[in-house]
Design a protein around this nucleic acid. Structure first.
Length: 292
DNA sequence: AGACTAACCTGAAAGC
DNA sequence: TGCTTTCAGGTTAGTC
C-alpha cells in the first residue's frame, strides 16, 4: 500500500543511493508483466548510464538518466527499494558524492526470490534492490519523448493540485467521492488509506456522490488531504501491512490514523463507532456522525 | 465518457 | 493440527 507519502519517503531515502552513480550491472528475475520493459532491453539500455536525478509524480518514481531516458518505478502493493552490499561507504564520501546515512547500510532487508531487480554501480558501493512479493509493481524504461506521454495518463500530483481542479473534476460524476480521490487520472498519489483519512478530516462521507460536493467542500477536502499527506511524510509514512522504509525502519503514521482499519472503534472526535463499507471494491472507513 | 468488474499475485488470517 | 477459503490493495483491460 505505498501511497504518495510512502513513495516520497522512499524517494528521499533512495536518492543518495542512485543519483550520480554509474550503472555497471543489471540483474533481474525472469520476464514477467512486472517488467513492462523486458529484462534484456533493460540491461542493454541501462549499462553505463549515470542517474542524474530521482523524481516522483503521484505514486511513480522516475529516475532520470544522463542520456535522457527515464526509468519508471512503481511500488504497487508490496514493492520495496533498498540498498545493500555496501563495500565502501568511505569511498563514496571521499569522492565527494555525499555520505550515505549509516541506516542506509544496515537495512534488515535481504535479497531473495522476490527481488526482481538489482543494480550495481561503478564505485563498488551499495547496490540497489527492488523487491516486490506480489509483483504489482512496475519497471519501465522510457525514451526522452515517452516519459511525458506516459505521465499524461495521470492527473496533477495530489500535493500540488488546487481545489478548483477537484471541483471541476467532480462535476457530473455520480460515483462516490472516494472513487474520485482514488482515480489517478484526476489526481495522482492518493490511495485507500489517505482517501479515508482526508474524508474524515473534511467531514465528508466517502459514499457521497462526487457531483454533490460544493466548492467549500472541495476546499476543505483538499486542505485536509494535503495536511494528511504532509504529516504522513513527516512521520515516515504508514507501516500498516507491508511497507517499511528503505532504511528498514517503520513509519509512524499508522499511529495517527483516525478511521482507516478502525471499524467498530469509537470515533476520536465523537465516540460513535467507525463504520466500514465497500465502495468501488475498496474498503472505506468513516464516522457516520462526523461525516455527511 | 463514466461506471463497474475481473484479473494480476502472494502471504496472512480466518474458517472448517 | 492441517487443509481450504478469503482478503488486501494499485492498476489496467474489458464490457456496458
Amino acid at each position: 500500500m505505498p501511497e504518495l507519502p510512502e513513495v516520497e519517503v522512499t524517494r528521499r531515502q533512495i536518492a543518495p543511493l542512485l543519483v550520480n552513480r554509474r550503472i555497471v550491472s543489471v540483474a533481474t528475475t525472469r520476464p514477467s508483466y512486472f517488467f513492462l520493459t523486458p529484462p534484456r532491453t533493460l540491461r542493454d539500455r541501462l549499462l553505463g548510464r549515470i542517474v542524474v536525478g530521482l523524481d516522483r509524480h503521484g505514486k511513480y518514481l522516475l529516475a532520470r538518466l544522463d542520456d535522457g531516458q527515464r526509468l519508471l518505478l512503481h511500488l504497487g502493493m508490496t514493492g520495496q527499494l533498498f540498498g545493500a552490499g555496501a563495500t565502501s561507504v568511505r569511498l563514496l564520501s571521499a569522492t565527494g558524492r555525499g555520505s550515505l546515512s549509516p541506516e542506509a547500510q544496515a537495512t534488515g532487508f535481504s535479497p531473495d526470490g522476490h527481488t526482481h531487480l538489482r543494480l550495481s554501480f561503478s564505485d563498488g558501493g551499495p547496490q540497489l534492490f527492488f523487491r516486490d512479493t506480489r509483483k504489482f509493481g512496475k519497471v519501465q524504461l522510457l525514451g526522452p519523448d515517452e516519459a511525458s506521454e506516459r505521465l499524461a495518463r495521470l492527473g496533477p500530483d495530489a500535493l500540488s493540485v488546487g481545489a478548483r481542479h477537484l471541483y471541476a473534476s467532480s462535476r457530473g460524476r455520480r460515483a462516490a467521492v472516494k472513487t474520485l480521490l482514488l482515480d489517478q487520472s484526476v489526481l495522482a498519489g492518493v490511495g485507500n488509506i489517505y482517501a479515508d483519512e482526508a474524508l474524515f478530516l473534511a467531514g465528508v462521507r466517502p459514499s457521497r456522490p462526487a457531483r454533490r460536493l460544493t466548492r467549500p467542500d472541495c476546499v476543505r477536502l483538499l486542505r485536509s488531504l494535503k495536511r494528511v499527506l504532509r504529516r504522513s511524510i513527516e512521520t515516515g509514512g504508514s507501516s500498516i501491512s507491508d511497507y517499511i522504509r528503505p532504511d528498514g525502519s517503520d513509519g509512524a503514521y499508522q499511529d495517527e490514523r483516525r478511521v482507516y482499519d478502525r471499524a467498530h472503534q469509537p470515533c476520536q472526535r465523537c465516540g460513535t463507532p467507525i463504520r466500514r463499507v465497500v465502495i468501488g471494491q475498496r474498503s472505506s472507513h468513516f464516522c457516520p456522525r462526523c461525516q455527511r
